[in-house]
């Protein structure tokens, strides 16, 4: 039963058709992970008992596999009567998992701002809120843009995990075809090539944006 190129090509439209689901999952997970990661970092920065608890939570998330988190949410949430679609659970899982990494990104982005910036803001009598909005946040965003872009690519490459929860993204569609036709090689090859192309394209785009930001930073 060799590799049938015609059959492989015939699966391309179906698998590409799921690209929307893949991209939506990527973007929503990235937004979720950023919001959650930033919140975690702010709580951790605040210190105290809550800060310590969040510090441990971040370490815990980073020491555990994304697959285990997906199973955890997929099976545990219904146990407590929370019924969500597989796609929602998948996005929640990726958001939670990557929030642990993005918290570190935000931490590094804030730590990289020289102390003198806050002192200058205080010497100019800016309020705490104004200092964050006009001085700290813009510089932090510039610092985190590049690593954030890299994690966007990482999250894209993690979306095939959602196929395991039967989310019909690109790998999921490939498996649908495989189970209907009992041929795995062709749809998986197509999914692999399409994913690699998408990942390379995204990381190329991220690098372009990064260079433009860097050029702007040198103004």
């Amino acid at each position: 039963m060799g590799f049938n190129l015609d059959f492989a090509l015939s699966t391309v439209p179906t698998i590409i058709g799921a690209i929307g689901t893949t991209l939506i999952a990527t973007v929503l997970s990235c937004v979720g992970a950023s919001v959650l990661g930033f919140t975690f970092e702010m709580i951790r920065r605040g210190g105290g008992a809550t800060g310590l608890a969040v510090r441990f939570l971040i370490d815990f998330i980073r020491s555990t596999p994304v697959l285990a988190w997906l199973y955890f949410l997929y099976f545990v949430l219904p146990f407590y009567g929370i019924r969500l679609g597989a796609m929602t659970v998948g996005i929640l899982g990726l958001s939670l998992y990557y929030s642990g990494y993005l918290a570190e990104v935000f931490k590094a982005g804030i730590d990289a701002i020289p102390r003198g910036q806050q002192e200058a803001a205080r010497a100019l009598s800016l309020t705490r809120r104004d200092t964050v909005v006009f001085v700290i946040a813009p510089q932090m965003l510039r610092n985190v843009a590049a690593p954030l872009g890299n994690y966007l690519v990482s999250i894209l490459k993690a979306t095939p995990y959602l196929a395991i929860l039967a989310v019909p993204e690109m790998l999921g569609r490939a498996f649908d075809i495989a189970s209907e036709t009992y041929r795995y090689a062709e749809p998986l090859t197509v999914a692999g090539i399409l994913f690699l192309a998408l990942a390379l394209l995204t990381s190329y785009g991220v690098k372009r944006i990064e260079q433009r930001l860097l050029a702007a930073g040198r103004r």
Binding site: L156, K157, A158, Y161, I164, L171, G192, F195, L196, A199
Partner: peptide
Amino acid sequence: RSSAVVILLFF
């Protein structure tokens, strides 16, 4: 490096 590891394994 740039392929999704899940897909690589199944592939």
